[in-house]
Design a protein around this nucleic acid. Structure first.
Lengths: 163, 163
DNA sequence: GCGAATTCGTTGACATGTCATCGACCGTAG
DNA sequence: CTACGGTCGATGACATGTCAACGAATTCGC
């Protein structure tokens, strides 16, 4: 077994900063979201993804895939959001197993009320503190990392035993 | 009320990339950590912070502050880790209310066994995919954001009504 | 078509995190 | 010394996330 390559000074600083920023940013964004709009971050994400579709409707599995959530988690969460009147479930005409998640008018109102404040908070506590070059770099390397991870977790596209 | 400034194309790309990377990276790192070392990420973080102190012992509140966890969350988590033999609690001589969290030999073994693989995974799925300039930029802006957030959440250092 | 294997979404049990509250203890003002 | 406000850590109730299993429906191989 190889000798472990530990992080050098720069990498260590970056990794610690990344984790600490993540945590603080989450706490602050969640705090403001709850206070100003009565939504949790997961609530916001669900509503946001739904509202980005033309009809405000998505197949449950499609939504779960976009959010990188398990179907189980999404199903549980939708049940709770449904009780608050933010979304509804409809039957899927194509596939009798399926469920379609639908944004209710109240859900639409909620996301539209929450979005401006949330975007402002994201700017204020994060994006506006970065130079344009840093924003550019962030966009570049995050997508690079995402592609890399997506490739390694993706089920082999077709044909062939994996693992 | 002001017109909301939405994110421009670059910011939107960066923000989406950031969130997606976070999620995928978490999933992958947690998966490997569980599989290879039988630890969750929170477990690893607790053990890691403890092992970085000279004696492997920290006051509970001190550990909670470093990790940005609530005392309650840490107390619950320690109870579970204690049952697995990774840590112990000792009385605090200075302050009879206090508790000192102590890394057990088994806990030390666990973190030492887990660390090489974890660091390798962090490199492989993240840091090694970044150029040195990107690592530098990441270190710079994350610390800038952390300072900004820490300032806004910090109780006013001394003297004076806040809020 | 037909049957086996797979996918879909739900469910219940359980693990984890949050929040409010508590008893114990500390520090300080008087 | 003592009373009082604040801190410390634990706890129980509850919200949320994970995991395995299920019934129902679809798809694939023949």
């Amino acid at each position: 077994m190889e000798a472990t390559r530990w992080l050098d000074e720069h990498q260590d600083r970056a990794w610690r900063g990344y984790r600490r920023m993540r945590r603080l940013l989450d706490l602050e964004l969640a705090r403001e979201l709850t206070q100003d709009a009565g939504l949790s971050e997961p609530d916001y994400d669900v509503l946001s993804d739904l509202s980005e579709t033309p009809q405000g409707r998505l197949r449950l599995s499609e939504l779960a895939d976009r959010m990188l959530w398990s179907r189980s988690r999404l199903s549980h969460h939708l049940t709770r959001m449904q009780q608050r009147g933010l979304v509804t479930r409809e039957e899927c005409p194509d596939d009798a197993r399926g469920a379609i998640v639908v944004l209710t008018p109240a859900g639409r109102d909620a996301i539209e009320a929450a979005a401006p404040g949330h975007v402002t908070a994201v700017r204020q506590h994060f994006l506006d503190l970065l130079t344009p070059a840093e924003v550019e770099a962030l966009g570049a390397f995050t997508h690079r990392v995402v592609d890399h991870l997506a490739r390694s977790r993706a089920p082999r596209p077709r044909r062939g035993r994996q693992a």
